[in-house]
Design a protein around this nucleic acid. Sequence first.
DNA 1: CTCATAATTAGTCATTTAGCTAAATGTGGA
DNA 2: TCCACATTTAGCTAAATGACTAATTATGAG
Lengths: 102, 102
Amino acid sequence: MSQVFKALSDPTRRRVLQLLQKGPMSAGALCDHFEFSKPTMSAHFAVLKEADLVHAEKTGKSVIYHLKLSVLEEALLGFIHSFGGLAEAPEPPSKTEPEIVR
Amino acid sequence: MSQVFKALSDPTRRRVLQLLQKGPMSAGALCDHFEFSKPTMSAHFAVLKEADLVHAEKTGKSVIYHLKLSVLEEALLGFIHSFGGLAEAPEPPSKTEPEIVR
DNA sequence: CTCATAATTAGTCATTTAGCTAAATGTGGA
DNA sequence: TCCACATTTAGCTAAATGACTAATTATGAG
């Protein structure tokens, strides 16, 4: 979970995820959306891979990155859930309910 | 937003937030839940303050930290929303809701 | 006023991060 | 085979992070 939040803490990486949200994209195509060098972008991709937020599919000369939406969901919604659901709490927390504080 | 995610990327800080979820707590009381030195914890508090996730209220010798739940909500739900709602889009926080942000 | 307590600041250190250029790797096409 | 393209790795630097101890500030109690 820490790695997911760490990955999300950089605006470039958040933007990469948003681009991938529209569909899989090659490393080069992703790079075209930014002004950083390709090695710098490659390092950002590696952080996203490390957090398991993307999947890299190698096809020919290119590497196609895919967003792993379910991992993002699980991390964010899981964290939100540990806060009693935050805004969207479907059930009002009972006062006697045991609180799991990990 | 980057600062919120950065703050959340450390497990100690996430745990601090969860402790504060149960109610305001002094710096010292928070420290008692961890084995780190007080200055180290103070630095973590500073990161949370910087991200605007907590409010520090000075009362006498103590400093009482309060969770700013609405900021956490806005960052997480706002980001989730930018992803088309992910799993299930919760209601966006109403602008007219009287939110007490301390 | 003086002392003890609560918390932060100052200063240090090792590690990580984010950026770069240059070099290496791998793959498809001529 | 050889070349060009796509991407990553290697190696570097500057800045940020997270931890510590020691020192400082601020406040309430005696």
